[in-house]
Design a binder for these strands. Structure first.
Lengths: 224, 224
DNA sequence: GTCACCTTTGACGATTTCTTGACGGCCCCC
DNA sequence: GGGGGCCGTCAAGAAATCGTCAAAGGTGAC
């Protein structure tokens, strides 16, 4: 089932959206502010996000940036502000669509269909091979030799950032920011700790990694 | 270059769109009715279609259906009609976005960016050739003769400054400032040390460099 | 309250990288 | 021809980083 995360601080609108989306066969989660939204997104891994820009705790573009750091799920922005500058800022921050309130629920549903249509069948083979293990980012599943391997939430976030940049070097500061938040800059011991755990769970020979590589002094790299 | 097909029967609007899109680096083709649009699309295979629904010869949804039969390129619909039923019909026919006239050109461009962003990022990062080696600055990767070459962080920084100024002479003081910091002015031995390492790793004949050149008394230069 | 799981933290050799010093060759100027 | 400055090269000590182990908080389930 397609999972949708609805982020809105007005309970009426959030409720109306949830009911309408659920009635059309979507699995719906809700969040009332930006911090909740980022936590909920990391937990349920939605296929689409409906985001109200007028959140009480943080700017809408920050939420978009926080989501875009690790997911490519379409983001459909709702906003009461119709100014073009607002729309441009949100779209360039990474949003996929922008609808001004008040909106027609039928039109919104059509835009949701359009957004999910292109990301649904377009995402070919979401499984990645690492050594003898297969990683399914969408389903949050790892298998190795027929057995299922369990990863903790932090391990998932770290692995996801690396896998979404195949072949590319990801700097340690960038990894810390994306996984632990903007206030973490020098806690490289976290990276060492969790990279070791990932290698132990995924690599054939954890002492001699082939896919999860260290670039000394710079960062880490996933080689397909 | 990203190819955009503009379909509109009003010459003024078509012309305005063409000029604006071309000014932002797109390659633009135009068509004035539905039949022309389908022919032009088959000929130039656009990466995105901007489609006015009010065409003289056929209904807009037919054009959408005709395109969707063979291409997944994003379709951005323009229309003077703001009724929700129209929007829903167009979106469900296969359109990706729907903008009502009159529209803000900046917003339209932002929506074009959003649409091309999600379908485009298959392009790999630009590589620079040095002798027999290929340098990928974005991925932080160097290959030479099929083998991978490892650079240390300082080597990367130095090489990046030179490669970002192709053909230009970079003074030794500027190099020292950019790589080691503002407090380093006369440690030219650092430059000698690391330039030698870079040449050994990148140049065909490190003793007779062709791309990483010394300008005695002044600085260094990268010649493509 | 207890238990299990996850995260955070500290510490230690092993390895890589950076820094530093020294030497000879080349070119230009005197 | 001699001298000084600059460059390329080599080598070795100093410093930083990495992988690993172990254990102390935190949190939610039962």
């Amino acid at each position: 089932m397609i999972k949708v995360l609805v982020v809105d601080d007005e309970p009426q609108i959030a409720r109306a959206l949830r009911i309408n989306l659920a009635a059309h066969g979507y699995e719906v989660g809700t969040a009332a502010d930006g911090a909740q939204a980022l936590r909920a997104a990391a937990a349920i891994v939605p296929d689409l996000v409906v985001l109200d820009l007028g959140l009480p705790d943080m700017d809408g573009t920050e939420v978009i940036a926080g989501l875009r750091g690790w997911t490519k799920a379409p983001i459909l922005v709702l906003s009461g502000r119709a100014a073009s500058a607002e729309k441009i800022a949100a779209l360039d921050a990474g949003a996929d669509d922008y609808v001004t309130k008040p909106f027609d629920i039928g039109e919104l549903l059509a835009r949701v269909r359009a957004a999910t249509r292109r990301s649904g069948p377009g995402a070919d083979s979401p499984v990645t091979e690492i050594g003898g293990a297969t990683v399914d980012l969408a389903a949050r599943e790892v298998h190795r030799g027929g057995e299922e391997v369990r990863l903790t939430p932090t391990e998932w976030q770290l692995l996801e950032v690396l896998l979404r940049n195949p072949g590319k070097l990801v700097g340690q500061r960038e990894l810390l920011h994306r996984v632990w938040g903007p206030n973490y800059d020098r806690e490289t011991n976290y990276l060492r700790q969790y990279m070791a755990q990932l290698r132990k769970k995924l690599e054939e020979d954890p002492a001699r990694p082939v896919h999860l590589l260290t670039e000394p002094g710079m960062g880490y790299r996933f080689r397909p």
